[in-house]
Design a protein around this nucleic acid. Sequence first.
DNA 1: ATTGGTGCAAATGCTTTGCATAAAG
DNA 2: CTTTATGCAAAGCATTTGCACCAAT
Lengths: 131, 131
Amino acid sequence: MRITNQREIILEELRKLKTHPTADELYEVVRKRLPRISIATVYRNLERLSEAGMIHKLEYGGRQKRFDGDISPHSHVFCVKCGRISDVKTRDDSEILDMVLDSRGYKILKCGVQFEGICPFCQQNNRSQKD
Amino acid sequence: MRITNQREIILEELRKLKTHPTADELYEVVRKRLPRISIATVYRNLERLSEAGMIHKLEYGGRQKRFDGDISPHSHVFCVKCGRISDVKTRDDSEILDMVLDSRGYKILKCGVQFEGICPFCQQNNRSQKD
DNA sequence: ATTGGTGCAAATGCTTTGCATAAAG
DNA sequence: CTTTATGCAAAGCATTTGCACCAAT
């Protein structure tokens, strides 16, 4: 994979953010350093980087995809009100595969626990940040 | 929730299918019984029914949502090649919440294990059914 | 009678693509 | 010099919405 300026800065900025940004949120951040970058470039690079396993693509709640520059093993909670995603610390992940009794002939490549809940902000406000 | 003909038949047909259909796949099936039904009605009802907990909405892989008329506790595998979703039998689900060490102030509403893999069909063909 | 649901078509919103140009190796 | 990536604008696709009409309670 060719190292372009755009690719480098996208990765760098994503790694700085702890917010699991959407593509357009990251685009706004990257734009401060590369004002002429296209949103298409951001999408294309996030795709390439996640294929390469250098970042994680998070798909929750049927909304916008979110991206995580931290690829160390951890789980996520999705706030059903505002769509925010946060980290969840859990015990060892590998126990999960031991739970499988019948996978119907699938070759299982990966597994993960996904949580849904209400984030601290929405608990206080009893409504969404973004709705 | 009012019981309309459309709503009844959508639920009935979804419960018959073991394939975790997308909204448009279900639309094609329902259309055989209600030729004048609109895809919007299918979407609206799938939404209402899943809010009511009568069906499950499955969101995997950033593709089309899939729906499951079987709400008994079970997990799913998503085939990364063709997008098919199948059931996975696992041991008791409640152990998962016990795995949480730190949920960052979120009130956790639900949790689930998600698996990704290659379905038997794609293993044989070494390519996707739909690509 | 009143509320909620439907069908249709148009709109939305996120994401992807075609194409000509530019940069990387 | 040969890929591979970029920027731009347009297209794509799943889903949602506005609105007038219809049906269920």
